[in-house]
Design a protein around this nucleic acid. Structure first.
Length: 448
DNA sequence: CCGAACAGAAGGACCTTATG
DNA sequence: CATAAGGTCCTTCTGTTCGG
């Protein structure tokens, strides 16, 4: 609609190809990637060095690039590169120590745990680059050719540039099929060549200090392949498709806050109210203001898991109880009898939560409300569903690691002490984040 | 033990709807 | 009409299983 960019792909641009919806969508996505890529952060300071290739050469051509040119141009360099890299590698092996400036973790691949902020940023950018590279190498839409069958036969039915290109993925096979690996290593080599030297003109990563290896890139490429294969199977294999659709519908159902509770076909989802996701997002918006005022970073407690439940009715079939529950909520929120149909959610906080953690959340909510009121100086209507607390908590144990200051001593004493298996289940970080849990750590007295 | 494969969960970008 | 809630789609992350 009008949201779409004024694309250059008006009918005369691509010679013989008219875009199918998928192709168009793809082109648009490319456009978005392209626009998004060069500015991961630093909205203000336009460092001329970093941003000088405003148009990242590797992304320039939109749907139909000229990969062959580029490939052949680079291929020679590639051989030298491989040789030199191999040599470098063997040197390193000889040293047995990462003699480089590497900070004990030169590999970015495989779980981004223990990575610095810079490493995470670079990792993201690299993954995106690999993906774009793979798309251009394999042609944009191998999954949408969907000739319903006879996949293997015609490799060049459409006049799609690829005269010499053996570059396509075979999603019927696994990653390690030589043909598949060939594509991946080629993409990895290209990106590695373009990005591993900060002084090169093609360099366009957000940080020059982060080290990475060619095998990191290969790893990303493999992940991309698996992801695409999953999608492909969903489109071609009826069984897989059915399974995926079932899952998708369960996801949707789980997402919808109403209806889900009680009498659901999927009892295991009965507990997933998830306005928690949105609650978290709302609070995230107030983080900066909180930091300004309190000099510490509350982001550490903003995990979806830790947001309070918000329920519209107790989990019971007893209508009378439900009615009574509604009455209580109305009383708390000051709604009149006439407003009995107004929706109110009850906030049910987790029992394991310490007072300090609850206070942080309350403060975030207060700030969020304030900033809203300020920005919309025209007295915006606040139509959010009413939330009220009856003081109820639930006793489900936390399922993810907690910061020590978040754990309520009282709850722990009552619920956990004497239940070894439950004790086993709860894991704590060893240290509190800076600024938290200082006046009353978990081991200290309970505050009130 | 490790990597490959996979399924499910979480997260983010984007679009739609309802309402003052 | 502008805005925020609500919803969908897609990507990425995580945990588990299996075979060498």
């Amino acid at each position: 609609m009008n949201g779409l960019p004024p694309t250059t792909s008006s009918p005369n641009d691509p010679p013989t190809i008219h875009l199918t919806p998928q192709q168009y969508a793809f082109a648009f996505q490319q456009f978005q990637l392209h626009m998004a890529a060069p500015i991961p952060h630093a909205p203000i300071s336009l460092n001329p060095v970093l941003t000088s290739p405003v148009i990242d050469p590797s992304l320039l051509p939109v749907p139909v690039p000229t990969p062959n040119e580029r490939l052949s141009a680079v291929e020679n360099d590639l051989r030298e590169l491989k040789a030199s890299v191999a040599q470098k590698r063997s040197n390193e092996d000889d040293d047995q120590k990462p003699s480089k400036k590497s900070k004990k973790n030169p590999y970015i691949l495989k779980e981004n745990k223990n990575l610095s902020v810079e490493q995470i940023e670079v990792r993201k950018v690299l993954m995106r680059k690999i993906k774009v590279e793979l798309r251009t190498l394999t042609g944009t839409n191998e999954t949408s050719d969907c000739g319903s069958d006879s996949d293997g036969e015609r490799d060049t039915p459409t006049a799609s540039t690829s005269a010499s290109s053996t570059l396509s993925f075979d999603f019927e096979s696994n990653v390690d099929l030589p043909a598949n690996m060939a594509v991946i290593t080629r993409a990895a080599d290209l990106i590695f060549k373009e990005q591993n030297d900060p002084t090169a003109s093609t360099f366009s990563l957000p940080h020059t200090t982060v080290a990475f290896t060619n095998s990191d890139l290969v790893h990303f490429g493999k992940n991309t392949f698996r992801s695409w294969k999953k999608k492909y199977r969903g489109e071609h294999d009826p069984d897989v498709r059915a399974m995926q659709e079932r899952q998708a519908s369960r996801d949707r159902q789980g997402m919808r806050k109403k209806e889900v509770r009680a009498s659901s076909d999927y009892p295991e989802y009965a507990q997933t109210t998830d306005n928690r996701v949105q609650l978290k997002q709302k609070r995230l918006k107030a983080v900066n203001e909180y930091k300004n005022q309190h000099n510490k970073d509350p982001a550490c407690i903003l995990e979806t898991e830790w947001m309070s439940d918000e329920i519209s009715a107790p989990d019971t079939d007893d209508d009378q109880k439900k009615a009574e529950h509604r009455r209580q909520l109305r009383r708390v929120t000051g709604l009149s009898h006439a407003q009995k149909d107004t929706e109110v959610w009850e906030v049910v906080r987790p029992g394991f939560q310490s007072v300090e953690a609850a206070d942080v959340k309350d403060e975030l909510d207060r700030l969020s409300k304030l900033s809203k009121a300020k920005s919309g100086r025209k007295k915006k209507a606040n139509r959010a569903v009413l939330r009220a607390s009856l003081g109820n908590t639930h006793d489900r144990p936390p399922t993810r690691k907690l910061w020590p200051f978040m754990l309520s001593r009282e709850w722990y004493d009552v619920q956990v002490v004497g239940h070894p298996d439950l004790k086993e289940e709860i894991s704590l970080y060893t240290k509190n984040p800076e600024g938290f849990g200082e006046d009353s750590g978990y081991t200290a007295d309970v505050e009130h």
